[in-house]
């Protein structure tokens, strides 16, 4: 994998690397692409923190495209990452020119800006309930729904006897999340 991410790997290779060992693949991408983004941002008057924020935003977008299979690479992964970061930094520079006294929006706002406001608020409320699930359920749901790990991998990593057992557990966790969100939303409605 070491050399495969540095040149122009097919998107499927990259996806497999991210799914097999996320920390390792992300570290490799980080090491490869971040210095160029930092130079770019600092040359244009940004701080080291700006560079970090913009690069991490880009890496989140990149990760989601890669694991969802919507990534189309015509250059190396790091070239593509730098180009996403450059686009986001230019967007941020325009925003600062309009609103010079406001800081970089926080990570959640920056990525959720494309969603309608009400849906975004609900998503953040549900996110808090995800955090309150036990570690086992939380990891199971995030690994499957966000990190897009196959259930075979989840079953193996968590010691489930079969994919079927992992599937049942996943739906039990989803049911728990739904119940806690529903209870909270009902309480809020009654309070109003």
């Amino acid at each position: 994998m070491t050399t495969s991410l540095l040149s122009a790997p097919p998107a499927t290779t990259l996806r497999q690397a991210l799914l097999a060992d996320r920390a390792r693949a992300l570290t490799q991408l980080y090491r490869q692409a971040f210095p160029a983004v930092r130079r770019l941002v600092q040359r244009q008057g940004g701080s080291a923190q700006d560079a970090q924020d913009v690069f991490q935003d880009a890496l989140v977008v990149f990760y989601e495209q890669a694991v969802l299979g919507t990534l189309e690479l015509t250059a190396s992964a790091s070239t593509y990452l730098v180009s996403i970061a450059r686009h986001r930094w230019q967007h941020e520079l325009r925003r600062r020119a309009r609103l010079p006294n406001e800081a970089l929006p926080d990570e959640s706002d920056a990525l959720a800006a494309e969603e309608p406001e009400a849906a975004e608020e609900t998503a953040f409320a549900v996110r808090d309930y995800v955090e309150r699930l036990g570690v086992k359920c939380r990891d199971m749901l995030l690994n499957f729904y966000y990190f897009q790990q196959p259930l075979t991998q989840i079953a193996e990593a968590n010691g489930y006897r079969s994919v079927r057992s992992a599937t049942v557990q996943k739906f039990k966790c989803l049911e728990r999340l739904r119940a806690s969100v529903r209870a909270a939303f009902c309480t809020e409605t009654i309070e109003y």
Partner: peptide, 28 residues
């Protein structure tokens, strides 16, 4: 309601990924 759960899971996933990226940054 289930669609809302998926949106919330995406928000939580992004939060965790950002946390992992901060750790990678600190390590590097």
């Amino acid at each position: 309601a289930q669609q809302q759960l998926y949106h919330g899971l995406r928000a939580a996933g992004r939060q965790q990924l950002r946390q992992e990226l901060r750790q990678i940054h600190a390590r590097l």
